[in-house]
C-alpha cells in the first residue's frame, strides 16, 4: 500500500513521517518517533495505556491511524515536564502520593489527568474517578492515583494539598 506523508506537532516539535495508512498512531509514536512512553496494554481501546493528548482531547492512540491525525498537535508523557526538566505537578504528585507501581499505565494516566485538570481545576474524588475511568491500572487500586491528581490540582492552583481523611 502506498505510503502517506504525515506531519504533526509532537511535544512542541514539528515532526514528519512516511506511513502506511494502517499505521496506528501508537506505533508511529513509539517506533518512528521513539516516544516509548505511551504503551499498548489491551489493543481494544479499553485500558488507556496508549493515551496521548491530541488537539486538546485525551485519545487512545491504539485506536487511531497516524494518517488521521495529520496536522494535529500532540502531547505525550515525554512532553509533560518543563524544558528545564522540572517535573509537571502531576508527575510530582504521582511520585509523592505513590500513584504508580509498575509504571506501565502511568504515562497514559498522567496524560489523561492532565486534560482532566485542564477542564476541571478542582475535581472532586468522584469526578477524578470518573475522569480516569478510561485508564486501567492493575497495581495501585487507584486510591493513590486519585490522591496524586488531587495533589497536582492543589499545586497547580497554588493551594496547600490536604489529604482527604481516610
Amino acid at each position: 500500500m502506498a505510503k502517506s506523508q504525515v506531519s504533526m506537532t509532537v511535544n512542541d516539535k514539528k515532526v514528519e513521517g512516511l506511513v502506511e495508512p494502517r499505521m496506528l498512531l501508537i506505533h508511529f509514536l513509539r517506533e518512528q518517533l521513539h516516544l516509548t512512553g505511551p504503551h499498548i496494554g489491551c489493543d481494544t481501546s479499553h485500558c488507556g495505556a496508549c493515551t496521548v493528548d491530541l488537539d486538546g482531547k485525551s485519545v487512545k492512540s491504539c485506536t487511531m491511524f497516524a494518517v488521521q491525525v495529520n496536522g494535529a498537535d500532540i502531547r505525550t508523557i515525554e512532553g509533560m515536564a518543563a524544558a528545564d526538566g522540572t517535573l509537571h505537578a502531576l508527575q510530582e504528585g504521582f511520585r509523592e502520593m505513590h500513584g504508580l507501581q509498575c509504571g506501565f499505565c502511568t504515562p497514559g494516566m498522567i496524560v489523561r489527568a492532565y486534560r482532566l485538570l485542564q477542564e476541571n481545576k478542582d475535581p472532586t474524588e468522584d469526578e477524578i474517578r470518573f475522569g480516569i475511568s478510561g485508564n486501567l491500572c492493575r497495581c495501585t487500586g487507584y486510591q493513590n492515583i486519585v490522591k496524586a491528581i488531587q495533589y497536582a490540582a492543589a499545586k497547580i492552583s497554588g493551594v496547600p494539598f490536604q489529604e482527604a481523611a481516610e
Partner: peptide, 9 residues
C-alpha cells in the same frame, strides 16, 4: 457511553 477518551472521539 464508553469512557472519557472514547467520548472525545
Amino acid at each position: 457511553i464508553a469512557d472519557p477518551q472514547v467520548r472525545y472521539v
